[in-house]
């Protein structure tokens, strides 16, 4: 057994090479909706990072706006201009440029809020699952109460209490979003702490903090990938609802949801493009995220294998 392994001299494949050779990647390539979903999401990421440099104007720079160009229809309709592919709104803003900047706000809110909810929920879930007892009871009862309200309603309530603003939206989203992580993590933590490797760590004299961070945490993360992916989509939608209702982001930083609201007033005057195009983009983004999430759920859930 101590004899040198015949493979030990072979070059060790890099992380990336191992990924491309993995069963995960193999299944991904054969799953059309997963590829489509990730292409959509990648497209959005590309759009919000590079997009601002490609579009003709910065819709927030008043100096660049031309009121004379207000309510121009999309380029392919009569009266449209090739300068504004998807038309303009009442202030002469390019709808496409607004969508690029709006998607950026929407995605940033979705991602940051997801990160915050994940951090908070995972921490509380670890504490509840690891220590149990009264702490567990308190945390999980709060979670139960939280879950018994529709999350849009809770967020709406919080927003009307705090006032509007980007930071307030994030706080509202995090406080409705942490529960799902806490519950998932608590369940996995209960299961993992029963395993012998955690007992071995205790026998080795590791303090609880190290056991949690080094042993429990890395082993409860996998199911969170699915939750987190889907949640970005959910958060984009909730934020859009809040902004549409007027309690979301400020008008100076319009997200996709606010764009819909801005166009909504003129929707029935035949100026449909101001509102419909941002709506289509939200749909596309959430659709892509959910396709990806469904694939990850199937791949990462051992029970479905």
């Amino acid at each position: 057994m101590a004899a040198p392994h015949p493979l030990s001299s072979a070059p060790v494949p890099s992380r990336l090479q191992r990924f491309f050779a993995s069963e995960f990647f193999h299944n991904y390539r054969r799953n059309l909706s997963a590829v489509l979903g990730s292409l959509i999401v990648l497209g959005f990421l590309f759009m919000v990072t590079i997009g601002p440099f490609l579009v003709s104007q910065n819709p927030y720079d008043v100096a660049q706006l031309d009121l004379m160009a207000a309510f121009k229809p999309p380029a392919w309709l009569a009266g449209g201009s090739s300068e504004f592919w998807l038309g303009t709104d009442g202030q002469g803003r390019d709808v496409l440029a607004s969508i690029v900047y709006g998607s950026r706000i929407s995605l940033i809110i979705g991602l940051v809020a997801m990160g915050g909810a994940c951090l908070l929920g995972t921490t509380l879930g670890l504490i509840a699952g690891f220590y149990g007892g009264r702490l567990d009871a308190i945390i999980m009862r709060i979670a139960d109460i939280q879950l018994s309200f529709p999350s849009v309603l809770t967020a709406l309530f919080l927003m009307s209490a705090f006032g509007t603003g980007l930071d307030k939206v994030l706080i509202a989203l995090i406080s409705v979003g942490w529960v799902v992580y806490a519950r998932t993590v608590r369940g996995s933590t209960l299961r993992e702490t029963q395993k012998e490797y955690v007992q071995a760590a205790r026998v080795s004299g590791l303090p609880n903090r190290k056991i949690i961070l080094r042993h429990v945490l890395p082993n409860v993360l996998t199911p969170l990938i699915v939750v987190a992916t889907i949640q970005v989509g959910t958060f984009v939608l909730i934020e859009a609802s809040l902004s549409f209702l007027g309690v979301g982001v400020p008008v100076t930083q319009p997200s996709l949801g606010l764009l819909i609201k801005n166009g909504f007033d003129v929707l029935f005057s035949g100026l449909w493009w101001v509102s419909i195009f941002p709506g289509l983009f939200i749909m596309l983004l959430v659709f892509g995220i959910n396709l990806l999430g469904d694939f990850l759920r199937d791949e990462l859930n051992p029970r479905l294998k």
Partner: peptide
């Protein structure tokens, strides 16, 4: 420990 699969942190 008993279970060689559960006794090592994967």
């Amino acid at each position: 420990f008993q279970d060689p699969y559960a006794s090592l942190n994967p």
